[in-house]
Design a protein around this nucleic acid. Sequence first.
DNA 1: CTGAAAGCGCTTACAG
DNA 2: CTGAAAGCGCTTACAG
Lengths: 331, 331
Amino acid sequence: MAGVSAATVSRVFTNGPVSADLKNKVEAAVKATGYRPNLSARRLRSQHSSTIGLIVSDIRNPFFTTLSRAVEDAAYRADMRVVLCNTDENPAREAMYLRLMQEERITGLIYAPTRTMADKLGAMAFDFPIVLVDRAGPSGSQDVVGIDNAEAAGLLVDHLVAQGHRHIVGLFGNTSSTAIERHDGHAAAMARHGLATDACFLPPMAEAAEAELTRRLAAGEPPDAVMVSNGQMLLGLYRGVRRAGLETPRDIAIAGFDNEIWTELVESGLTVIEQPVAEIGRAAMDLLFERLRTPEMATRKVALAGRLVVRGSSGARGTAREAGPQADLGR
Amino acid sequence: MAGVSAATVSRVFTNGPVSADLKNKVEAAVKATGYRPNLSARRLRSQHSSTIGLIVSDIRNPFFTTLSRAVEDAAYRADMRVVLCNTDENPAREAMYLRLMQEERITGLIYAPTRTMADKLGAMAFDFPIVLVDRAGPSGSQDVVGIDNAEAAGLLVDHLVAQGHRHIVGLFGNTSSTAIERHDGHAAAMARHGLATDACFLPPMAEAAEAELTRRLAAGEPPDAVMVSNGQMLLGLYRGVRRAGLETPRDIAIAGFDNEIWTELVESGLTVIEQPVAEIGRAAMDLLFERLRTPEMATRKVALAGRLVVRGSSGARGTAREAGPQADLGR
DNA sequence: CTGAAAGCGCTTACAG
DNA sequence: CTGAAAGCGCTTACAG
């Protein structure tokens, strides 16, 4: 319709060398017809998909929500699409989505694997690079971006001990390497303080954490403090405390990971480790692009710092709620 | 490698008619080579993309987070992918993503447009059906799924009036048709009660709502109650109330839309309209599939019911916090 | 049931 | 700068 060859139209759309004259003709025809190039055809022919895969356990978890937004923004800036998958911590779904990624011929993958899959990843062959986020595989086997989990858990323990707590129970998720690292950090810090460790692994869900707290309260004396390894479990823990009619930190101190919005709004606030989630997403994309440029580069582990946010819930036992530090509403 | 034609391999992958013998050979070869079909090629040749587009303003808004999860689950069940886009309420980004959707040759689109784009949609031609969610275009021009916004806003007003409030300020977003409908419902209900209307439109963000409340408090007497049109604004409103050192409902009553997790955890809870978000997502997918089956079907508007969740924040003025209904932690 | 052949809509050497 | 031709990896009538 523009009276030019398909090759010329293609050059107009890919900013190839075209005379101004023909370019105008093509653009006029494009406007008139509403023509849009077919991305499937382009991908097939050009052999690059300009697509980033993102596999997380559940987009409704605020950590992954924020992460996905950061990944999408970075992809948008690089003129790439992202295909997002939720696995619900189900290894079978993960395997399925990994296959899908191969069928999509994605450029690269950002992935928060379960422990089960993380262990198998090394034995699989993929045609694209993978950067793990939040959760690592066997040491050194994959690029990873996250925080220093053991250190962060230690910060929490140190803080609770400084507030006078001695019996500090740790509840940790049972599906991710991250929860193990946090457990180990908890155990190491307790040992450093000469305190006995009391911890267990649970499904990383609110219900499980609430049930475990309830069980322990029914069994006897409440511990001085309880800390948990993610935002979902912190929610369950908080609900359990309230349902038991206890008050923090008067009757029990609590703390956990993930500075979710509600943690600062509730009573005098909940003490948490804040992760630089958006930065983790950006760093993962950066690392992915670097890996694409330099495939032979040695495997990297990027650990950003977690930040301890002290609020009322972790104060000394016997302290009234009002005596805790005020929730910080000013950020 | 299996000693068969490409056509036969294709038939194995698409469950076409193949003898058990050849099927086994192909499957053995697939296992040995790790072969995966190329989706771009398949889409190009078969002329269907099996892809659903989803365009929302910001995935970090819990409404859209939950919506996207419901859409993805439904897509997964239908063996389709979804491509997700965030527009930040920016019409230029919306236009860009609509172009992308055409280039992807998506099967259908689920879309929460700004008012600006919703008005233009009728004049544009797309090769795929569109179902709007949460926000409608000009009446009858597009399929829509959402709640009855005017009715829901009326529920909130009726409830506040029943609690003895008279001067009920309404703060509404200024980018969506939804906020307009909620405004109109507010105005109509106030009129029904013989009360003067006091409302304004703001950017649908926490900061804007907080600033507006602060401005009004500085200007004179606080109103009896303030209601807002979404979760972000409710957050800003709540922060503003706390920052002003006020207590709900003693000094001021507040209420709003979206039953976000923190609204039930805060003090004695915030009164809200709960939207059946996951159901909205499923209904939108159902409507999309129906439209694909019956393109000539008359345009539909599906309105699900919003549910009034009464909590402490909307009680009578002068009531102490503790006198409000207890927050419901039991769901 | 099976294979040879055509063709989806692009991009990319290649020649001019 | 421009076009004719080949080909990316599939699927799908068509014949057998």
